[in-house]
Amino acid sequence: MAEMTVSRLWLMRAAFVALCIFVMFLHLLPLDTVPRTWAGPDIIMALAFAWALRRPDYVPAITVALVMLLGDLLLQRPPGLLALLVLLGTENLKTRARALREAPFLTEWSAVALVMIAIALGNRLVLSILVVPQAAFSLGFLQMGMTILCYPFVVAFTQFVMGVRKIAPGDVDLVRRGA
């Protein structure tokens, strides 16, 4: 039984990384080379939060940091900044995971939305303090809104397709052995 949970733990950790790389792959497809007036959601961030709130042991800090750093490098963002902010966000959510476990989904959603808004504002603030040229405010704002809106879908995918569910009180033993 312990073997099962350990192998499942590593399998799910690998699944998270694979999922994120797949999302980056979709972003990189040379389909739209014309500037767009809208921005899609940041799926990787939403995935990290959804998994961190459900099973913190599936998304250790090092995984989140490396995946986000890779995203920063591949998707032409300032390297390190968004990774840092998302890492802080996931760790913050992990500490609140227990409190949010019994709460209804709406509470979880608003908590995640607050963290996402904080990340977007923090990103913008740091970039403007260091005078890094950045895109129009509306575009960043739109991306943040889209990420918040698509969070329920990411959660549904996480729960029903990937099978990452919140830990029921009886499952705690399994988690302990796995972690």
Binding site: P30, L75, L139
Partner: peptide, 13 residues
Amino acid sequence: VLADSGSPFRQSV
């Protein structure tokens, strides 16, 4: 062209 920038904020291929 292999890939685009992958981000709505940057325009590169």
